[in-house]
């Protein structure tokens, strides 16, 4: 309970392994509260949930080891270099020094960042940062990655490269959980749930939702739902 209103009402959903699941809602709809419960930093008033097979009450430490998290607000340290960031986050997740070294070399190569690996992250364009942040979130091979508005404001080409990375991770079996209020990000998900006032009002593939409401875009689906 948060003050006099319930931020998240009884919500039920299941996300499959390797699925890209979109968790949509307006600002203040209860997205952040739900996420905090799922990653084990806040407890629900009632109900239960398991993440990657772990109970959110009992196994919070196991959950933390098996999930990755990336948000648009905080992703990397601007005053560390690309390589230092990777080393730092690898260290946090208990990767061995050798493994960190291997991982950072392949990661920097895959992203084509050889020339800027010694540059401060703060000096890189937003799109690059987001791509590095995503790779860092995958560093410890988590079973589930939570992405919070990952591509808001990013230029269209970089955004697509980003989504290709997400597709690839999902293809390799990582479950992707995207929270966003940018409806164009929703179009890329396998399934989306739309939250209005703490309740899930719709849960389906974008295609089916669009045909259900007989509209062209997820934006219009959202408009229909939010107006009730």
């Amino acid at each position: 309970m948060f003050g006099d209103f319930i931020a998240v009402n009884a919500i039920n959903f299941e996300v499959k392994k390797g699925e890209i699941f979109g968790f949509l809602g307006a600002n203040g709809a209860g997205k952040t509260t739900a996420i905090k419960m799922l990653i084990g930093i806040s407890h629900p008033t009632s109900g239960n949930a398991t993440i990657a097979g772990f109970d959110i009450y009992k196994n919070t430490e196991d959950i933390k080891k098996n999930i990755g998290y990336m948000s648009q607000k905080f992703a990397l340290y601007d005053d560390l270099t690309v390589r230092e960031n990777i080393t730092f986050f690898g260290g946090i997740y208990g990767l061995s020094r050798k493994r960190i070294k291997e991982k950072s070399t392949t990661l920097i190569k895959e992203l084509g960042l050889e020339d800027v690996s010694k540059n401060l992250v703060g000096s890189l364009p937003l799109g690059w940062k987001q791509k590095i942040a995503f790779s860092v979130a995958l560093l410890h091979d988590p079973k589930i990655v939570f992405l919070d508005e990952p591509t808001g404001g990013v230029d269209p080409i970089t955004r697509r490269q980003f989504w290709e990375m997400i597709y690839k991770a999902a293809h390799q079996g990582t479950t992707i959980f995207v929270t966003t209020h940018y409806m164009d990000e929703a179009e890329y998900c396998d399934r989306v749930s739309i939250m209005v006032n703490g309740k899930i009002e719709a849960l389906n593939t974008p295609k089916k939702l669009k045909s259900q409401f007989n509209v062209e875009s997820m934006n219009d689906v959202f408009l229909n739902l939010a107006r009730g």
Binding site: I157, K168, K207
Partner: peptide, 24 residues
Amino acid sequence: NNTYKVITSLNMYPFNHSVYPFGE
């Protein structure tokens, strides 16, 4: 049936000019 494979296949297709995911 598999968007990721569509993207990777099209990227390898020698005649492609551009390949961009656009929602579904």
